[in-house]
Design a protein around this nucleic acid. Structure first.
Lengths: 130, 130
DNA sequence: TCGATAATAGTAATTATTACTGATAATCTA
DNA sequence: TAGATTATCAGTAATAATTACTATTATCGA
């Protein structure tokens, strides 16, 4: 994996953000630094970087994929209004749940994806508790 | 919501399946009964039926949306090999987790999406435990 | 420094889904 | 029941996110 200024800029912008941006959000940011960069380059680099384990491609629902420079074990909470995604600390007692599911279904359980859904503080303020 | 033979066929096929099919899988099935049906009709009806609460549009990751005739409260397990999705029984102690998350993030927590990932028995047999 | 080739910009193609349009058929009303 | 109303349909075009392609450029080891 060669070191290019495009790749550096993409990784740098992603690392600065804690908003778990989509490819085109990131493209918008990086373009301010490298105006000639193409969207394809952003996609390709996000793919390469996540394949190499440098970043994480989030396995969330929604029409766009999202990326995270934090590759540690943590869950996310997503706002059903604005799509914002925030971090949660990792929880405990996973092994027990997985074992129960494996027994019940015959699947070999590799993990589970947990995403809380709610309304973020900003959206909550906008529409007064609703 | 009018009763049309297209809508009936779509709902009937979805109800018969416990595989949580995507729109185009369902289209393939329904076309055997109504060869002139169009894919747009399938999409439109899945949208209408889920808006009316007759069926459920699953909030899972993956490039295609999936649908479920069972609108009861239950979770799913997805095979990372073939994409198959199976049902899990509903778990307990949710309120406690939600409260903890709400306190930690400031979100108003509405629910959470839990999807187990693993290898289904069929895929496990094919490649011998891996 | 040079050459192999990974990576790029720009564009075209693909995939899933939604929107549009004129025709058809389900339901309502007289 | 007939005729009017309009939801729904088939077929097609449009959109959005992503991936693939291609000729050119830039990285980096020898």
């Amino acid at each position: 994996m060669r070191k290019t200024k495009q790749r550096e800029a993409i990784l740098d912008e992603l690392t600065k953000l804690c908003t778990h941006p989509s490819a085109d959000e990131l493209y918008g940011r990086v373009k301010k630094r490298l105006p000639r960069i193409s969207l394809g380059t952003v996609y390709r680099n996000l793919e390469t970087l996540s394949r190499e384990g440098v970043i994480q491609r989030l396995d969330t629902a929604g029409s766009q994929k999202r990326f995270d420079a934090d590759t540690g074990d943590h869950r996310h909470i997503r706002c059903i209004r604005c799509g914002r995604i925030d971090d949660l600390a990792a929880g405990a007692d996973r092994a027990r749940c997985d074992a129960r599911v494996a027994k019940g279904t015959g699947y070999r359980v590799l993990g589970r994806r947990v995403e809380y859904l709610g309304v973020c503080p900003a959206c909550g303020r906008k529409t007064g508790r609703r």
